[in-house]
């Protein structure tokens, strides 16, 4: 039975912070194609604080740590990304409660709670060309594969899901979020939220030595 400890969750968030910070300009440029070009900067501003504060956050439980991270998102991530990412961390934190380690199945339940929370917050659904087009199938894939207990296999599978979501949604017209304002102009451009999720997962693969070859151009830069 694979157990994921609070230290491992912390490390994963630290790696994800590096991904967001490193891609600040790239994510903003992607957002500028159809949105208002602030996505990368909004997210990076928050994750710089998260990375800096991570070592000293409350580590009494995974839930406590994630709730603190949710608060940092609420305070430091600007625009719509603040409540979206803040909600994700808050719901995942509430789902993990006072545990200091979680099984893969518990992790899948945390991700599912985060995804349901984000859906409720923004009112977006599958096919609206938001990061939920990656997150919803990721939550389903995790639920399916978690009982087998192979963390590397789960990571590889969800990275593939997110990778595919980039191309599968590329030609959709955005219905929610800032990109919806430009209507047809949002077609043929990838959603930066989906690319963001996929890039974090791909970087986790590299960090944990999980062999994965992405197909989307945005992950093969």
């Amino acid at each position: 039975m694979t157990e994921i400890t609070i230290e491992q969750v912390e490390k994963a968030i630290d790696v994800a912070s590096d991904t967001v910070i490193r891609n600040e300009i790239y994510f903003s440029d992607l957002d500028g194609l159809a949105g208002d070009g602030d996505f990368g900067t909004s997210l990076a501003t928050g994750f710089k604080v998260i990375k800096a504060d991570l070592p000293t956050l409350d580590k009494s439980a995974i839930g406590a740590m994630l709730l603190k991270i949710s608060m940092l998102c609420s305070k430091h991530v600007g625009g719509s990304s603040g409540p979206i990412w803040g909600t994700g961390f808050m719901k995942a934190g509430m789902a993990s409660k006072d545990k200091t380690s979680v099984s893969l199945e518990e992790l899948a339940a945390m991700v599912n709670a985060a995804v349901e929370g984000i859906m409720a917050r923004g009112g977006a659904k599958l096919g609206d060309k938001t990061l939920l087009d990656a997150l919803i199938p990721i939550a389903e894939k995790m639920k399916e594969l978690a009982p087998a207990g192979d963390a590397a296999a789960v990571l590889k599978a969800v990275t593939e899901v997110a990778d595919k979501a980039i191309d599968e949604t590329r030609n959709l017209v955005a219905h929610r979020g800032r990109a919806s304002q430009v209507g047809e102009r949002s077609a043929n451009t990838p959603d930066p939220g989906i690319v963001g999720v996929a890039t974090i997962l791909y970087d986790w693969c590299k960090h944990y030595g999980v062999d994965y070859t992405p197909t989307a151009a945005e992950l093969n830069r």
């Binding site: 609420s74 305070k75 430091h76 991530v77 600007g78 625009g79 603040g82 803040g86």
Partner: peptide, 8 residues
Amino acid sequence: VFAAPPVD
């Protein structure tokens, strides 16, 4: 200006 206040 023209942007929502942060959640906190």
